[in-house]
Amino acid sequence: MTTVASLSEELDNNPYALSHLDALESEAVHIFREVAGEFERPVILFSGGKDSIVMLHLALKAFAPAPVPFALLHVDTGHNFPEVLDYRDRTVARHGLRLHVASVQDFIDRGELRERPDGTRNPLQTVPLLDAIEKNRFDAVFGGGRRDEEKARAKERVFSLRDEFGGWDPRRQRPELWQLYNGRHSPGEHVRVFPLSNWTELDVWQYIAREKIELPAIYYAHEREVFARSGMWLAPGEWGGPKDGERLEVRQVRYRTVGDMSCTGAVESDADTIEAVIAEIAASRLTERGATRADDKLSEAAMEDRKREGYF
């Protein structure tokens, strides 16, 4: 009788058996190549965050030694961490990539968007994103969303059909049996594609360690000025923090996820190496978005509401 132990031993002794990271990498590479064959104008969302960095690394692998046949798109809130923007620009230059930047600030300056009272711009990204998709006629948009991040994202397919307004309707999503992906869409519609759907935060970090992928330094423990708000440590900035009564402190922190400075919290941590980060994540019982993203706490269904409006 085959037992778990005997099956594990069999896999260990089989030189052709794939590790779980190999299997995830193979699936993602297949998805990139499938999109390249099915769509005319794909684009990769790239913010300089860890998931988009891993996604780009996989795209580079999928088409090597040829260049990546897709452009990159960053929806810039204007409140990004400087370290992350610097990483983004260095990466684009190093690989000779094309980068489109959709600026939230430009839409505010033209009066097409209004600042929120809380200073948070993450919810304002939807309009610049949809505008960039329409103007550039992108028909497939790669995102780094993972199903373990948040309950609304757990409902996503790998190929997520969006209507002519960029909206997501769970009733229109298609089955994906045997890794068969259906990219058909009507004029004006497009497909969001999630190569990391089946990855977890721990998978991402283990893959970063295995592939020796460089990340912005803020993902590792460092001393930083922060202040407490709503149970999170936020970084000061032009977006409006700290307010009266909020005291700046120097703490040793790191970031599990990267977004708008106004809604992305740091966690206190001593994990200044990738091995220490992996150990810390393995012991955590909170997802990175649940622990450190204020924009997901605006309502019980904040992410799902934004997805219906056209966000990721």
Rank of each mutant, 00 (worst) to 15 (best):
residue 127 V to D: 11
residue 76 D to Y: 11
residue 141 V to L: 14
residue 196 L to K: 04
residue 84 V to C: 08
residue 147 R to S: 10
residue 95 H to F: 13
residue 133 I to Q: 02
residue 139 D to L: 03
residue 191 V to E: 02
residue 180 L to Y: 09
residue 74 H to Y: 08
residue 179 Q to P: 06
residue 73 L to A: 01
residue 142 F to L: 12
residue 205 W to A: 01
residue 208 I to E: 00
residue 147 R to Q: 13
residue 120 T to M: 13
residue 71 A to P: 09
residue 155 K to E: 09
residue 169 D to Q: 10
residue 208 I to S: 02
residue 97 L to A: 09
residue 166 G to M: 07
residue 116 R to C: 04
residue 200 T to A: 09
residue 78 G to T: 08
residue 204 V to G: 00
residue 191 V to G: 00
residue 192 R to N: 02
residue 181 Y to W: 15
residue 113 L to C: 09
residue 105 Q to G: 04
residue 168 W to A: 00
residue 77 T to F: 09
residue 88 R to C: 03
residue 96 G to A: 11
residue 106 D to T: 11
residue 194 F to D: 01
residue 198 N to Q: 14
residue 96 G to T: 10
residue 185 H to V: 10
residue 179 Q to K: 13
residue 68 V to H: 01
residue 206 Q to N: 13
residue 158 V to N: 03
residue 197 S to W: 01
residue 203 D to L: 08
residue 132 A to T: 00
residue 134 E to S: 13
residue 81 F to M: 06
residue 167 G to P: 06
residue 187 P to T: 06
residue 81 F to T: 04
residue 98 R to L: 14
residue 126 T to Q: 13
residue 145 G to N: 07
residue 170 P to L: 14
residue 132 A to N: 00
residue 200 T to N: 11
residue 207 Y to H: 03
residue 182 N to W: 05
residue 76 D to T: 11
residue 137 R to F: 10
residue 202 L to S: 08
residue 110 R to S: 06
residue 156 E to Q: 14
residue 92 V to T: 09
residue 99 L to T: 08
residue 103 S to R: 12
residue 121 R to E: 02
residue 91 T to K: 09
residue 92 V to A: 02
residue 102 A to E: 01
